[in-house]
Write a protein that binds this DNA or RNA. Structure first.
Lengths: 144, 144
DNA sequence: TTGCGGTGGTTGACTAAGTCAACTACATTT
DNA sequence: AAATGTAGTTGACTTAGTCAACCACCGCAA
């Protein structure tokens, strides 16, 4: 009988979310892990990413994302820029404060990342990430 | 720079939860994936498991678990049995209907499991599970 | 060129999941 | 026996995730 993968995965995610939340709360400012996730993407693709792009990348529901972005804008971390090619959409840019937050919280995230990797080799980490991607891909294929 | 493991993991969990929910909804009866998770544990350790044991195993918050169990009892899938050694706690038993549900939904879960494993070797699956456990363990160590 | 189906984004209304604190009842320690 | 600890419950709340309806705009085909 082949192993059930879900249970360890649920456990891992749970622990990870808890650690991340704790790490992030230190320098707190109304930011949740999900805000952080989105903010990092916006930071990375600064002014070259639309809400819809983020939906594609993350599979976050577009309704939820619209709200997250509204909140990030409300906090002054993000702004909308007109997209001259398509008046329905807009590019997302990050503010100086936004960058601050990303930088600051990246440190915390990195710490969690390192803790998580304790006792594992780079090869194992890479394999793990590869397998996770593959499995997600398998599941997503199925649902279309 | 070492790879960030969180993003693929978040994606995988997201896809997995979605698939599971869909798989479970087919034969629906007020059951969520989390109910299922708890119900399976109760089925496995039938009459030999307490609420607190489940909290230890899963890290589900005890408040949340109390409510889940109340719901499962309300649905007639689970019952409480007095624990003669400790009047504060009780053992959890599963009913015939409960077993039915577990059996039925295990099929659905197994299907999702198989989809997830497409193109991976048994060795890779085993490694993946091992690494997930190790990482969860690392994180949990840290938080005490 | 208009009109029609599709897409990006927003809002409403909701369910599921997770958290924290306070409390009850019983157990253990000292 | 008193103090301290633990199992489970309840209240009140936050974070995530989902679905449907809608608007403004896009692109294409008749």
């Amino acid at each position: 009988m082949s192993e059930n993968i879900k249970e360890p995965l649920f456990n891992l995610l749970h622990s990870m979310k808890r650690s991340l939340r704790q790490a992030i709360e230190v320098g707190d400012l109304g930011i949740t892990p999900l805000h952080m996730r989105v903010l990092k993407i916006i930071s990375f693709y600064n002014q070259k990413v639309t809400a819809n792009d983020i939906v594609q990348k993350t599979l976050i529901d577009k309704a939820q994302l619209a709200r997250l972005i509204k909140e990030l804008i409300g906090l002054g971390y993000v702004s909308k820029l007109d997209n001259p090619n398509d008046k329905r959409s807009y590019y997302l840019g990050i503010s100086g404060e936004g960058e601050q937050i990303v930088k600051q919280l990246s440190v915390a995230e990195h710490r969690v990342n390192e803790i998580m990797k304790t006792g594992l080799t780079e090869q194992e980490i890479a394999d793990f990430a590869r397998l996770a991607k593959q499995m997600a891909h398998n599941l997503n294929q199925q649902n279309e």
